[in-house]
Design a protein around this nucleic acid. Structure first.
Length: 486
DNA sequence: TTTTGAGTTGTTCGA
DNA sequence: GTCGAACAACTCAAA
């Protein structure tokens, strides 16, 4: 094989130059580099990217293209069944090697395993790397060798493992082939919505790309982290990292985050508060790891409850109620604010996710898989592992799940976590003039208060679609049922 | 194999 | 208004 034979870097969920182990390893071979992205909308199980994710992908690829060009590299864009496309491309351009960072979705694991053997058969070397996790799923095991199903011991174990190495810097200027293989034009993929263009709220809320990810991490560590333990619970405050979509597309790595937090700790000295906040934040990164490990160990996580008894739960089928939930018209302000934030900005605060998810699953008794599907289509950070594990957790059927009797009260939650009502007012403008006292339960407000706020229940804002106290009883009965039939 | 301690994120009721 | 207890047992992980 001539040293002119190129190395293909197959970029997937790692759209960054810094701390990209596959890219760095490829650069270190000294061969011509060929970065490739393949849009695969023929995946089994229809877990292709949803609309919001496609919007993000477009912009992330645009930025990546520019960043690669500065290194002297192209970005070859192809679409189709990814393994076939890659095999054809690698063969056609006489590649010496293909490198990628590992993915952990069941179909990705299957596809990559298959492709690897096909490439090897064709005489093309393959190397995969860890670019997405602090700890590989197969390295964190219980004493008896199995996968963890409880977060705390899992995370304890992770922290006792050898810490992740220092993040890699972006490779220096590289060289590529003189004659490049054909590439699609990104714009012809039509990833952006048109007619109608519903992405205005996304544009307002987000800047995709590696540079923006790094900037956000810096702001977060500088100005937000110290109060993270307290403010992360507050959807009305910019108190969480908002790194989830950047992590989802690999514009930043958990290793970079880990090291940035530790660097900050070293700088802060022994400040107990800083340490507590940092530990809290890193444990959220830990949850991301845990979800990914769970998906890897239990590939049915997106489909089947982890606790088998829940397969018999008496779920309701109610398309009309489901629609109202999707559109943020439940009549419970905190739920509607969350669902509308999702629809408008492609993201929902984690506290609101729990409240809205609990409402779908426990107040409406609609299957968690339906909620997960909606989130998948509308979130810019839609990640199969996080999304599936999160929904199972709320439904009570997941790993380390909430006890079944833990049912969120949307009024209590609203009053506790959005006390000034800024969150609800921002996303449910028809309630903007309601006084704080009644904002989270407008149906209990005296008529003159409603009138003064220009609210006509059932007209300008819905009546609550279910009575929470009653719905709670029904949910508890449902859970009672699967317990006794077991 | 058996035992023991522990387990993200809540709500409601009654004193 | 505030506080503690009850909710109900089960599974996981380790010793």
């Amino acid at each position: 094989m001539s040293s002119r034979a190129p190395v293909i870097v197959w970029l997937r969920q790692d759209l960054r130059l810094a701390d990209n182990p596959a890219l760095t390893a490829a650069a270190n071979t000294g061969r011509p580099l060929l970065p490739v992205y393949i849009l695969d909308q023929e995946l089994p199980g229809a877990w292709t990217l949803g609309g919001a994710s496609l919007w993000w992908l477009h912009h992330s690829l645009k930025r990546l293209e520019i960043a690669l060009r500065a290194l002297g590299l192209p970005l070859i864009l192809r679409r189709g069944a990814a393994d076939q496309v890659m095999l054809d491309l690698a063969t056609a351009c006489g590649a010496a090697m293909v490198m990628w960072n590992r993915c952990y979705e069941p179909w990705a694991v299957d596809r990559d395993t298959r492709l690897k053997s096909q490439l090897l058969e064709a005489g093309i070397a393959v190397a995969s790397h860890n670019g997405a996790l602090l700890f590989e799923p197969w390295t964190i095991r219980t004493k008896s060798g199995g996968p963890y199903r409880v977060f705390s011991p899992f995370w304890r174990d992770c922290q006792q493992a050898s810490p992740p190495g220092a993040p890699l810097t972006a490779p220096p200027h590289c060289h590529t082939l003189g004659e490049l293989p054909a590439s699609d034009n990104l714009d012809t993929w039509a990833l952006l919505p048109s007619a109608p263009d519903w992405a205005g709220g996304l544009r307002e809320a987000w800047t995709p790309g590696e540079a923006a990810a790094r900037a956000r991490l810096a702001v977060f560590i500088d100005r937000i982290l110290d109060d993270y333990a307290r403010d992360r619970e507050r959807p009305d405050i910019d108190g969480s990292s908002r790194l989830s979509p950047h992590l989802r597309f690999g514009e930043i790595s958990p290793r970079q985050i880990w090291h940035a937090v530790h660097a900050r700790l070293a700088q802060a000295g022994e400040a107990a508060m800083a340490e507590k906040a940092a530990a809290k934040f890193l444990s959220e990164i830990g949850w991301r790891e845990f979800s990914c490990h769970l998906l890897f160990q239990f590939p049915h996580l997106p489909y089947q409850p982890l606790q088998p008894a829940f397969a018999d739960f008496p779920w309701e089928s109610d398309p009309v109620a489901y629609q109202r939930w999707c559109r943020g018209l439940t009549g419970y302000p905190i739920v509607d604010a969350g669902m509308r934030q999702l629809w408008r900005t492609g993201w929902m605060h984690n506290r609101a996710r729990m409240i809205a998810a609990s409402f779908l699953v426990k107040d409406l008794l609609i299957p968690w898989q339906d909620g997960a599907r909606w989130f998948w289509d509308t979130l810019v950070d839609a990640d199969l592992a996080n999304n599936s594990a999160g929904w199972q957790w709320v439904a009570g059927c997941g790993a380390d799940a909430a006890p079944y009797f833990r049912i969120f009260n949307p009024v209590t939650q609203g009053e506790r976590f959005d006390p000034g009502g800024h969150y609800v007012r921002a996303f449910v403008p028809e309630l903007a003039k309601m006084p704080d006292k009644w904002l989270h339960r407008p149906w209990e407000a005296p008529p003159d208060v409603l009138a003064a706020a220009n609210v006509q229940l059932g007209e300008t804002y819905p009546e609550p679609m279910v009575d929470h106290a009653h719905a709670r009883k029904l949910a508890l009965e449902g859970y009672q049922q699967i317990k006794t039939t077991k």
